[in-house]
Computed example of a mutant assay.
Amino acid sequence: MANSYTALSQHYDLIMTSGYYDYGAYARTLLAQLRDRKDVLELGVGTGLVCETLLELCGADLRITGIDHTESMLTQARARLGDRVRLIWQDVVEMTTPPTFDAAYSVGGVWYCVEDEGSTLFCSHLLAEDDETRALKNLAAALRPGAPLLLAVQQAHRDYQRPLPGGLVYAQEIRAAEEAVAENLYVKDYFVRRDDEVVAHQRCQFRAYPQNQADRLLAQCGFRFQHTTANGLMRSYVRL
């Protein structure tokens, strides 16, 4: 996977917990969808904020494995979670795991969905379609038949900035990529500034598929769309 959040990792928690995500809402929605499923895989665990919220809500009932390919993020996740979650440095494109998981989810990790002007887009940090197919097939191989794949739904990506604690300012800028690497490819720049000085900058690329195209791709890799949750925060697929 090309994207890494190494440059932003020092400020990641500050950004994410100051209004970027409502972790409580996502965690409650996840738990309602997981029901009695216990062995769960998080795709793109980051610094462990989703895991931490899930464990606060459900105690030790979940057995979570979190994978990420950014070591600096995993270092923070290990400090936050200790031995409550199994954390693995892993690129989903290279993942080889037997079908041991009852469910998988991603909240802005490897895959997520975006609502934009009445349309739903399937967004991926994997830029090449061959990698996309390989990663989804790897994930299907890691899930038991009937297991749900739960993808967070976000609001449309827009340029904006907002203040952070400590006199910092967060800003993001999104544009279509100039390189013809893949169709529907975008570049997202994250900035943390203090007094107009950039103290951290991260550039990531993502690919946005129209939902009908994404559903066909997922079906080819062993997943069928089930539903969007009533609150609109998750799209659920099932491992066939």
Rank of each mutant, 00 (worst) to 15 (best):
91 D>N: 15
59 G>Q: 08
67 I>N: 02
237 Y>N: 11
138 N>C: 06
31 L>P: 11
165 P>E: 10
56 E>W: 00
69 H>W: 03
71 E>S: 10
10 Q>G: 03
236 S>R: 15
87 L>N: 01
173 E>P: 00
179 E>Y: 04
27 A>G: 12
88 I>C: 13
64 I>M: 05
52 E>S: 13
202 Q>V: 03
90 Q>I: 03
32 A>F: 06
79 A>T: 15
166 G>L: 08
174 I>C: 11
135 A>R: 04
28 R>F: 00
1 M>A: 11
217 L>P: 05
157 H>Y: 12
28 R>D: 10
237 Y>W: 14
8 L>Q: 10
139 L>T: 06
23 Y>R: 12
150 L>W: 02
10 Q>N: 07
36 D>E: 15
89 W>E: 14
207 R>A: 07
141 A>S: 14
233 L>C: 07
87 L>E: 12
33 Q>M: 04
77 A>T: 13
30 L>K: 01
172 Q>N: 15
88 I>T: 10
66 G>C: 05
175 R>P: 03
205 Q>I: 00
100 T>Q: 14
187 V>P: 05
159 D>Q: 05
239 R>P: 10
176 A>K: 15
131 D>A: 11
9 S>G: 07
201 H>K: 13
68 D>H: 02
18 S>P: 02
133 T>N: 05
68 D>E: 00
135 A>F: 08
217 L>K: 13
130 D>I: 08
3 N>P: 07
182 A>E: 12
169 V>Y: 02
115 E>A: 13
102 D>K: 09
22 D>G: 12
169 V>L: 13
153 V>W: 02
172 Q>P: 11
213 Q>S: 14
106 S>V: 07
20 Y>G: 01
57 L>M: 12
186 Y>A: 04
138 N>D: 09
209 Y>G: 02
93 V>L: 02
152 A>I: 04
164 L>D: 08
192 V>G: 04
185 L>D: 00
201 H>P: 01
58 C>I: 11
21 Y>G: 04
85 V>I: 06
14 L>E: 14
65 T>R: 09
191 F>D: 12
64 I>F: 03
145 P>H: 05
78 R>H: 14
139 L>Y: 06
226 Q>L: 14
1 M>C: 02
224 R>P: 03
235 R>K: 14
46 G>P: 03
121 L>H: 06
29 T>N: 10
221 C>D: 04
176 A>H: 09
76 Q>T: 11
225 F>Y: 14
126 L>N: 04
31 L>W: 03
135 A>M: 09
142 A>Y: 04
160 Y>N: 05
52 E>M: 01
163 P>C: 02
218 L>K: 07
91 D>G: 06
30 L>P: 09
110 V>R: 01
62 L>Q: 08
132 E>Q: 14
55 L>S: 08
55 L>E: 08
51 C>N: 00
211 Q>I: 15
205 Q>D: 11
42 E>G: 07
